[in-house]
Amino acid sequence: MRTGEEDRAAFRDLYTLTASKLFGICYRICGERQAAEDVLHDVYLTIWKRAGAYEPSRASPITWLATIARNRAIDWQRAQKVRRASPIEDAPEILDTAPLVSETMLDDEAAHLLHGCLDGLEERQRSAIRTAFFDGVTYAELAERQAVPLGTMKSWVRRGLAKLKECLDA
């Protein structure tokens, strides 16, 4: 029988192993350190409470954790009702889906598939999709950042997503 103390030790290990990854997610989306810390705190409380809801058949553990972090950070960001017209400046760059990535980091078939398909898109489509994912922004913010009408942005992205789907399903 595990004691509460052993659980805490495991939870601390989980924090040590994953906090930098999840903080990277919170920081990029929240855009400020203090908010990102608060969100990270909430993320780990959520993980502790919802560990029983984790379904191994649906997602890898780190994906599950990362998804919680991204969703929490987006919730916070949208609750602020302040739009960031540009990405935060001091956050580390997201790696581009260059071939080197597929050689060095991604030995996983699913990762190859997605990155291969993303590489097949027009630059503006790929860029918008990546920005939406990594910065957690909506169509309205994407349009504002690129200074294009909302309808135009939607059209670009929808075409990009349709092409992506075609490639992923092929």
Binding site: S20, K21, F23, Y27, R28, L45, I94, L113, F133
Partner: peptide, 28 residues
């Protein structure tokens, strides 16, 4: 779609996290 897009998490750079564990424990 969520599963496909989750592959992008691999690219997300880590940022050294503050030590929040004591605060998290207090909340727990």
């Amino acid at each position: 779609w969520r599963t496909h897009l989750a592959q992008l998490f691999d690219l997300w750079p880590a940022v050294e996290a503050p030590d929040l564990f004591a605060r998290i424990e207090r909340s727990l």
